[in-house]
Design a protein around this nucleic acid. Structure first.
Length: 560
RNA sequence: GUCCCUGUAGCUCAGUUGGAUAGAGCAACGGACUUCUAAUCCGUAGGUCGGGGGUUCGAAUCCCUCCGGGGACGCCA
């Protein structure tokens, strides 16, 4: 159920019918109808919806825009239009459509009936995969991972509500060069911890977490390790360490409310032969050549700036090669749309990844890379630096514990992925109006309080059919209803533009309208009919706040 | 040097495929608690949308150019 979309498509049909009628009467000549919009104008005085078809049609019809609009207006019989109050021509030729309030008054009963399903659009039989975080299992999660987690999970929630069949996936980089370095680091730490004076690798993972991991492994398996040859020991420690790291990643993401459908191991691409197969395929197509002992993929054929190595001179495949096999596998699994959430530092990888998909015969437009800018964490007004290689100062676990899951999730999606995110830990903890999370949650708690108050006074909202929403005539009430009606379409826009932050903004707008309303009108009163209407308004407002917070993975508390 | 992101109110940021008079929060100033939670609300003030060209009925939005900020350019991932 999507009220805005329903109205838009009804109005679109009205316009199209009018065009057709005008052409039949030879009042307007045209072959093609331009791609016009029925949009919600910024200015309220421009109507509930505005249409730009007359302006866009001017050239095709060889007629002044306002003249076209006038003719169209004559073709529309307002008496046949249940929702339209009046239509005006304005400006350069805008057709401004004013609705009566009937549709708004139909809304509360629908939302009330849908409850937690309000916000869901119709299924559109389209499989989409969102892959996000996919952090290397060689260290702790950092703030960039957390932002990716919040953005990816929220986007998946949005797509779900927009009617897609969504799968969440985590790609485990458990093969390749960095794993070898990780193994070397672990081995070196083991020797150091057992009293050997060995040097730590220059490019190794120097963080405290690696030392802790080795300590944990020693605590559990020390006897075994002592009696192993070095290479065997390296292998075992690596396996245990990866297991521990992945368990940690799962646990931490789970604390953020993130659960995946699929954990995909890079190693399986190597072992199953999928990597070799895709390389053979590309070779067969003539996209691969040899230079200086390495194999190169002619990504420049597909718009990349320079060709890329897929197999090193030492015979080992690169990360890129595995990634090609991985993404081929995604499309082979039948996804109609594949979305990756990546940090901005990977942007150089985008063009060649899309190029590779084109080379494999897939439509590169079906692969979308959502790049997000990096996170700066602030504490006491100072930037907190984090680095996997040199050790962290604030871990993600500590952040979640300190500010809470709700604030963490809200803050990480609050800004457009294109913007750098400054995460202010003090603000996230504050229980005040400065903190947007509390502002939104407080709105929900306040509404719950109204209903508690009503219950205490022995008041109950009447049955839905006995309530007359048309009593809600105050401007604030109509605006609130309108905002609630926007929710499903807001989901659609956020899905289409891959913009999870829009939902955060929507919530704040909605909460703001509620707070304002609350301060000006009393819900509970002696006027039984008005009280019912307002209780219903509060009920659907509460439902919409709760449902929209749920999209962000944020709780809607009943008490605060 | 090439590529990506970015530049909007004092600060932090919104602004769906180009739409009409550019929005919100914070900060500033002035107000509102015998009333359903003041973790709230109301009001005032604050802008040549980085500069300059162009495209068109119309540009914060698209194109060119210049300037500033961040990032990526490895046989790492």
């Amino acid at each position: 159920m999507n009220p805005i979309e329903n109205l838009q498509s009804a109005l679109r049909k009205t316009i199209l019918d009018a065009l057709e009628l005008a052409r039949g009467k030879k009042l307007i000549n045209y072959d093609l109808i331009p791609d016009f919009v029925i949009e919600v104008p910024r200015e309220k005085q421009h109507g509930d919806f505005a249409c730009n078809v007359a302006m866009l049609m001017a050239r095709e019809a060889r007629m002044a825009p306002r003249k076209i609009a006038e003719i169209l207006l004559e073709m529309i019989d307002l008496k046949q239009q249940r929702h339209i109050n009046k239509i005006e021509i304005a400006g350069a030729g805008f057709i401004n459509i004013f609705l009566n309030n009937e549709w708004l008054y139909e809304l509360p009963a629908l939302v009330h009936k849908m409850g937690s399903r309000y916000g869901y659009n119709e299924k559109q039989n389209c499989k989409v995969q969102v892959e996000f975080v996919s952090a290397n299992p060689t260290g702790d999660l950092h703030m960039g991972n957390a932002r990716g987690g919040a953005i990816g999970d929220t986007l998946a929630n949005i797509l779900d509500r927009a009617g897609y069949d969504v799968e969440r996936e985590f790609y485990i980089n458990d093969a390749g060069n960095q794993i070898e370095i990780f193994a070397d680091s672990l081995a070196a730490r083991y020797l150091q911890l057992t009293g050997h004076d060995v040097e730590f690798p220059d490019n190794g993972y120097a963080g405290q977490d690696v030392i802790n991991t080795v300590k944990n492994i020693m605590a559990a398996h020390n006897d075994e390790l002592n009696n192993m040859p070095a290479d065997k020991r390296r292998e075992k420690i690596l396996a245990w360490a990866l297991e521990e790291k992945i368990r940690y990643i799962k646990k931490t993401l789970s604390e953020l409310g993130i659960e995946y459908d699929v954990w995909f191991s890079e190693k399986t691409l190597h072992e199953s032969g999928k990597l070799d197969k895709v390389m053979e395929y590309l070779q067969g197509k003539g996209y691969i050549y040899e230079k200086e002992g390495a194999l190169w993929f002619k990504t420049t054929l597909f718009g990349d700036e320079k060709d890329e190595v897929v197999r090193r001179a030492n015979g080992l495949p690169t990360y890129f090669a595995a990634d090609i096999a991985y993404h081929r596998d995604k499309f082979e699994r039948g996804f109609d749309w594949v979305i990756n959430v990546w940090g901005a530092d990977h942007h150089g990888h985008v063009a060649r990844m899309k190029g590779a998909m084109e080379a494999l015969g897939y439509n590169p437009d079906k692969l979308d890379i959502l790049l997000m800018q990096l996170v700066r964490l602030y504490r006491d007004g100072e930037i907190v630096r984090m680095s996997k290689r040199t050790g962290t100062t604030v871990s993600l676990d500590e952040l979640i514990e300190e500010v809470g899951r709700d604030a963490a999730r809200f803050f990480f999606v609050m800004r457009s992925p294109d913007s750098h995110l400054d995460f202010d830990m003090e603000l996230a903890k504050q229980k005040s109006q400065d903190n947007p999370v509390y502002y939104a949650q407080y709105a929900h708690a306040r509404i719950c309080s109204i209903f508690r108050q009503a219950a205490t006074a022995g008041v109950k909202m009447s049955a839905i059919d006995d309530i007359n929403p048309a009593l809600l005539t105050a401007e604030e009430e109509l605006e609130l209803l309108h905002k609630i009606a926007d929710f499903p379409e807001e989901i659609n826009i956020a899905a289409r533009t891959m913009a999870p932050h829009r939902i955060a903004r929507y919530i704040l707008d909605l909460a703001g309208m509620f707070h304002s309303y609350y301060n000006h009108y009393r819900v509970l009163s002696d006027d039984k009919d008005m009280q019912d209407a307002r209780l219903l308004l509060m009920d659907v407002t509460r439902t919409t706040i709760k449902n929209s917070l749920e999209v962000l993975g944020v709780n809607a508390p009943e008490h605060m």
